[in-house]
């Protein structure tokens, strides 16, 4: 099942939307879907976290976003399988 667009609309960068690291503004942590729907990129100017969509399942863990922080979008790899 592909990731539906209306459900992507409610998805946010967990680092920028929750807890002590929440960014200012009334709707922080919005994401852009890039690379044919395979990656989600946080739009906050000083975040740079990127989250893979593995087998249609977005991996929205801060640790995962940290791994790919500030990686140029064109060099992001194929996200791969959910279970290695």
């Amino acid at each position: 099942m592909a990731v539906s667009m209306d459900l992507l609309e409610i998805l946010r960068c967990p680092y920028c939307v929750s807890g002590e690291t929440r960014k200012e503004g009334d709707d922080p942590g919005q994401l852009n879907l890039v690379n044919d729907g395979r990656w989600l990129v946080c739009t906050e100017p000083d975040c740079g976290r990127e989250y893979p969509v593995k087998e249609d399942i977005p991996v929205m863990l801060i640790e995962e976003g940290d791994k790919w922080q500030d990686t140029p979008v064109e060099t992001l790899p194929e996200p791969g399988k959910l279970i290695d």
Partner: peptide, 27 residues
């Protein structure tokens, strides 16, 4: 969870890998 949802014919269940302490959703 996704496999069992498919087996039950549930087409409105989507899954996200996420941490309960920092949920990746809008307010």
């Amino acid at each position: 969870a996704a496999e069992l949802a498919a087996r039950l014919g549930l087409t409105n269940v989507q899954t996200r890998l996420a941490d309960a302490e920092s949920l990746p959703f809008d307010d």
